[in-house]
Computed example of a mutant assay.
Amino acid sequence: MNKKIAIISNVSGSLVSFRGELIKKWLDLGYEVYTLAPEYKSNHREKLSNWGAKAEKYDLNRSGMNPFKDLKSLINLANKIKEINPDYIFAYTIKPVVFSSLISKQIDLKGMYSLIPGLGYAFNGGGLKNKIVNKIAVLLYNISLKNNDKVFFQNPDDLNLFVDLNLIDQEKTVLVNGSGVDTEEYYNTEPQAEKISFLLMARLLKSKGIIEYIKAAEIMKNKYSEVEFKILGSPGNGPDAVDMDYVDQAAKKDIIDYPGRVNDVKSYIAQSSVYVLPSYYREGTPRSILEALSMGKPIITTDNPGCRETVVDGKNGFMIPIKDYKILADKMEYFIKNKEAIIEMGKESRILAEEKYDVHKVNQKIIENMDL
């Protein structure tokens, strides 16, 4: 009888887009793989089923802080895990990690593994609500993580923070290079050096640097009206959301082009000259940057955890201070004035993607450290 792996997420899309190659690798190795998510879009369920995975649902109050709803989610997940009876659990994002780790103490497992794909809102700083959420998150991680055999981190800042806070022992930590990127699917392209176009892909959150991007674009548009500035992504929600009126007005003034959320970003990346993510969100390693690296685009991003690892400053792009739209505009202007740098830095980005962020190399490290 094949051994079972349960991979637990808070959304079905990430199982396909971010963990798909890992799931397929487990299946190739002969494991029976169960995916657990609160809801499945029909195309996600179909893909997982076609690969050979078994898609299961569980109840999850994804973003709320209601302790009664969370307790109900915990009990529901515990019953589902006991029903599956896995040999290994692999969980990621805060609630699946905390709940699965707590449940793992009550069942017989060969291995409990967690992935911390960035720290997000709970560690993003800010007002009183952020501080309360942070205290709760630290407490829950402290209670739950110590039962893990290994915890995977996507950047050294997050790893070091968890060790410093005594949430996990150093010897149980593993650093991986983000979620990785399929360098064949995100094929190499020649950067567009004639008609200059800048691209940002993210949810429309303030902490993703959307406002700084639009401000820098406005400065550049006043000097170089022919240059394009695109934003792809869904509207945000909550206190960190960018006011959509602000975005719409920028689009009406022809400062930016905002197609919204698109299903296949590859054509947009291919048509762009430079990829920009001025984030100060607590990223793991932004997937959008990895996709742009793989498709041979220079990068402008911030000296921010998860972002800073993707740029060798001056070699495949530029690293800028967070929240500084004027320096962002300066770096944009550098590429506008030095088109040959777009070509040369784009080549370096592709090399970095192949050497450091190839998804198969990332997954191999995870599998080796799971002792499968």
Rank of each mutant, 00 (worst) to 15 (best):
V16W: 06
V16P: 02
E21V: 11
E21Y: 13
G30V: 06
Y31M: 15
E32L: 11
L36P: 04
P38A: 05
S42D: 02
R62H: 12
S63N: 00
M65K: 12
F68C: 00
K69L: 13
D70P: 06
K72E: 11
L74I: 13
Y88G: 02
S100M: 10
S100Q: 02
D108M: 14
G111L: 06
I116Y: 03
N124W: 04
G125F: 07
N142G: 15
L145H: 10
K146G: 09
K150V: 13
F153Y: 05
D158M: 15
T173H: 05
L175A: 05
N177K: 09
N177H: 10
N188V: 06
P191F: 06
A193D: 13
L200A: 11
A202S: 15
R203V: 14
L205S: 12
E218Q: 15
V227Y: 05
P235F: 14
D240R: 07
V242N: 10
I256Y: 10
I256N: 09
Y258N: 13
R261G: 00
K266P: 03
K266H: 14
Y268C: 12
S279L: 10
Y281R: 08
S288N: 13
L290G: 02
L290K: 03
A292W: 00
I300V: 07
D303M: 07
G317V: 10
D330N: 14
M332W: 07
E333Y: 00
N338G: 14
K347H: 08
S349V: 11
E355D: 11
Y357F: 12
V362F: 05
E368Q: 12
